[in-house]
Write a protein that binds this DNA or RNA. Structure first.
Lengths: 219, 219
DNA sequence: ATTTACTTTTTGACTACTCAAAGTTGTCAT
DNA sequence: ATGACAACTTTGAGTAGTCAAAAAGTAAAT
């Protein structure tokens, strides 16, 4: 049974690899996991020895099929737990990420299956992130468009909130933006970094960096 | 934050101490936790250094107020989680103990409070074990009577199933005994170790050792 | 072609938990 | 009292995960 540390390392690699081919730098992992670079090198070598990932020294790291499957299972648990916390326990949108971070390592497949059924086999979690299926493991199709990159003046739908840090969640909660919201970009000023959007409930103003964390799709 | 190992040690001490005064032997803990006696001695010294229990060498171990509070919180989590698994997720009575064993270390106070509310602040778990209250921490009043010790021919009610090992749970599931069941001891033969009981649904025959794991109360 | 700056890896050390095996100690029967 | 025995503790060692600091490699700028 993999330890929760191992699960966290694999998950960090997974969510940072754009596709199966790309490698993730050890520096990025150190940043993401909050440990020193030396620790990453050590762990990565051990994970590679266990066949969970390939380590290309001074290049980066790539998951093996086995490592990927394991990481995907953890992401699935995380997102189902988040959905449960919000929909059944009525917890606040912005506090569930941290809770799920702990629970994802303690939940058995059996309990997970029950939760999934209770929730009606949801396709995405409260942040709009897709929940990989039990048998069809796949991750993050995603439109690739964000409020920072989309065509202005077109009618959009918020697909996913890409950043789950509490302050950002707090911020967008005030704007009223959430998965499913209808929105249109009114104007975007690359110089000042301001994005002005219109939503059914009013107006929202946000900066370019924030806008990049909100994935949208034309409707 | 205590590690789950620490939580498990404290819980093991708690559920094995009859009262606040009694000490628990390190041998009993080694048996309970499935580690060697030397490991217990080492850990117990470390726990004592942290102020969570008192170690009286070659005598045993007793929880401090702080250790007791921590252990009680873990037991509370365990029993609420078990109740949730059975009542909400409709899981099988006999498989929830193991699941709760893992979850009890991963659940925050916030999530616990939500679960408790969702379940209507239950007083006891599916095995009949009392759930210590959030503020009024107390453990195991218990009648002290079991099918092995009670007065024969009196009308009884099953209060708690004291042994949560899967085989035993499987066994009593076949007999139909569960918390709340009405039962009367027909005959008890100390020589052969046979206890014969009458329940509304029929008869059950069990041995003395098994009978000692079923707590009852006269009605 | 060096220097400089940056990233990554190595090294030595530490904490938490564990075991096997050897060493102590308390108790109980003689 | 005196063994004998069982329970308990000590000792030495190993795994997982971590850090700080030194060493090594890479790449871009001069």
């Amino acid at each position: 049974m993999p330890t929760s540390t191992v699960e966290n390392y694999l998950k960090a690699v997974l969510v940072r690899s754009a596709d199966t081919e790309s490698v993730v730098s050890t520096g990025a992992l150190a940043e993401a996991l909050g440990v020193t670079p030396g620790t990453i090198t050590t762990m990565v070598k051990s994970l590679a020895a266990q066949g969970l990932l390939e380590h290309h020294p001074r290049e980066g790291v790539r998951l093996t099929r086995e490592g990927r499957a394991l990481a995907m299972a953890v992401v699935r648990k995380h997102r189902i737990v988040e959905t449960f916390l919000v929909q059944v326990l009525k917890m606040d949108w912005k506090e569930v990420h941290g809770e799920a971070e702990a629970l994802e390592h303690a939940i058995s497949e059996r309990v997970l299956a029950r939760l999934d059924a209770l929730l009606g086999h949801p396709a995405s979690d409260p942040h709009g992130d897709p929940i990989p299926g039990a048998k069809s493991p796949q991750l993050d199709p995603g439109s690739g468009q964000t409020l920072a990159t989309c065509e202005p003046q077109t009618q959009l739908r918020v697909e996913r909130i890409l950043d789950q840090s509490a302050p950002f969640l707090e911020f967008i909660q005030r704007t009223g933006l959430k998965p499913g919201s209808r929105v249109r970009v009114r104007e975007r000023d690359r110089a000042s970094g301001v994005v002005r959007c219109e939503l059914r409930t009013g107006e929202a103003t946000l900066g370019l960096p924030e806008a990049a964390k909100i994935e949208v799709r034309a409707t």
